[in-house]
Amino acid sequence: MKLSILTEGIFKNNPVMKQVLGLCPTLAVTTSAINGIAMGLATMGVLMGSNVAVALVKNIIPAKVRIPAYVVIIATFVTLIDLSMNAYFHDLHKILGLFIPLIVVNCIVLGRAESFASKNGVFDSLLDGIGSGLGFTLTLFVLGSIREVLGSGSWFGINLFGSGFSPAILLILPPGAFIVLGFMMAFNNFVEERRRIGRGGVQ
């Protein structure tokens, strides 16, 4: 079933919440909702491009050099996104600029190339790239939103509580990322465990 490939990456096999991959950008850039979305979409663009490219060339690449070949492909797409973002979304690029090149070493991208795109067709690989990318974007968006609302008192740059509100600055500092992500994972596991028991699973 094609649709399940898409939803797999968003929920059941979410890159951050379930596979716990790609934590460097997850923790580093999510100081605001917009940063989370932008980083997620940039990664999704790379995932789609690299998954399709890897699926296309998987049969001509000798097994021994597949990892270097994948890395070249991934690095190419990352640089493409970096350049176009700098040209067309310059302000956003100024904030995320440092982290875009790091998508190359984001294990989600190489992980999907190795474990999915190298074994499946072009269309399925594209779906997998979109699914994993959306899952990553969704997680970064939620994490960024929580940190921005509690840590800066605003959402998408819009002040929510007026000037009397004193935000918990800790949450937009690096430790805040670990704390919020920990709570999100705990909540996610709690909900899934409840569902499993609800379906008659063993506690």
Binding site: V57, P68, A69, H90
Partner: peptide, 25 residues
């Protein structure tokens, strides 16, 4: 051969995009 071809294609693509975005950046 395969690695060289892939790298050459990547370089070509990057050169094109770099040229196209240079002025804009």
């Amino acid at each position: 051969v395969v690695l060289t071809v892939i790298s050459a294609l990547a370089a070509l693509l990057l050169a094109g995009v770099y040229g196209a975005t240079k002025q804009k950046i």
